[in-house]
Design a protein around this nucleic acid. Sequence first.
DNA 1: AAAATGATCAAG
DNA 2: TTGATCATTTTA
Length: 190
Amino acid sequence: MARKLPLKFYARDAAVVAPELLGMLLVHHVGGQARVGRIVETEAYQGPEDQAAHSAGGRRTPRNEIMYGPAGHSYVYFVYGLFHCVNVITQRVGIPHGVLIRALEPVSNLEGKTSGPGLLCRAMGIDRSHNGLNLRGDQLYIAHPGRKHYRTPEVHSTPRIGVDYAGTWVSMPWRFFDTASSCVSKAPKR
DNA sequence: AAAATGATCAAG
DNA sequence: TTGATCATTTTA
């Protein structure tokens, strides 16, 4: 019943796509099994204007190159020497938007915590080797769970986490989460 | 409050 | 080549 999201879904502003990703399924096929989680927390990053984005000011490096490519692809990076984070690229070629997946509710084959961007990548088995994958392919993708299984999220928004360096963009309410889920990451205190 | 821990990037 | 930084997490 689950159906992969079409290119059209991704080809919009990250701040529009981010809340709509709540309730969708992130699927990773690894070692003959499908690891599946329900997306319950996301954040939008909209370069080049957004000073919190890796693509702020049009910055373009080997790491974030994929942000400038077509929508519907993965952007995976390594941060703090310890954790990977996975993003979905949105908008069109040349406009570096992305949505960070911040928390999942386990659905199948997930071990360990999934309430945080670094933790969910560990549980899903996602690392830099999964950078740039087409999310309409067969290895890593996002799907609508299907009418019968879809639970409508209670969407709330707050400012984003861990971007204190971003000046006025810090206060942009581009973190979205399902308040009905117990798997949302706990926001650190300021 | 601060450590853990290493890729990444801009500067020199 | 180097040094500062970092879209995090855990422990105290």
